[in-house]
Amino acid sequence: MSTVATEAELTAERRSPAPRLPAPRKRPRQRNWLTIWALMLPAIIALIALIAVPVYKMVVLSFEKPNIFTHKYKNVGWANYKSVLGDHEFWTVVFKSVIFDVAAAAATVICGVAVATAMMHMNKALKLAVSTGLLLVWATPQFIGATVWQWFFDTEFGVANWLALHLGFTKEFQHSWYTSQWTAFFVVFLVVVWQSVPFVALAIYGALLTVPEELNEAAEMDGAGPVTLFRRVTLPLIVPVLIISTLLSVIWDFRVLTQIAFTTQGAPYGQTNLLGPYIYQKAISSGAYGVASAIGVVVTVMLMGLSYFYVKIMRREDQ
């Protein structure tokens, strides 16, 4: 699955400048290679055994109609791919997943940066409270957190409806948040963002802490306003972490599963089933293991597009 990347990468490597960190003089290059191998080998072995092999299996399965109970595997060529790519539902799901992904990842990163920046200026007690709160959210089992949110927006017992009623927004108590695709997605969106912000916020906060105070002070003395200060001094220093958090948010939010399973369960009419639940249904509930594997491959290839940007960024970083 990585042929494209391989070629792109090889060219990138060829064009890379000479070794960035030359071994200290007087040491033979030989030693370096030994060290590199010794350091990399465990990871390479683990990645091959634990990831490459299962992925290979997935690719093989994607060309088969397997019966995993009788252990009979029938090769079906590209049939699974044809059925996936020709399935209108699949493209709808992908389209929705992309939109949701962009919205959720953007919201997560913006909130994360805002929270992290605010934390830098808070008073101490509050800062401690906020970081504790974030850690607690992060440490709460996903499905429990999702369940609580589902309760808030419950048709009959929900706090949201209760509030709306008592604040006079509505006369009718039983507003159903899950009969409209938009409000249903809104609930999933809230859960996802709520659960993802802590990681981004804490990562960026960590990065912000590494910005030497003198830099800020120096800039301030030069008369830089807060916006300029952030753009000119802070931002460049947290860019690597920002890129990483954004990329990870985009990748993770593309296939939320638990948060949907424990809130809307696809309601209304399966319209909030994004890629995660979609694959789960194919792979596990309906026993279409071959098709599910094909979806896995297709999705991976699609997401590989993202890695193109990453490679570009990395190369810039390397130079």
Binding site: L61, R255, A292
Partner: peptide, 13 residues
């Protein structure tokens, strides 16, 4: 790239 492989599709493998 590994992060991009949908975990659900790896269940059976």
């Amino acid at each position: 790239l590994i992060q991009m492989i949908p975990g659900e599709a790896l269940f059976v493998p």
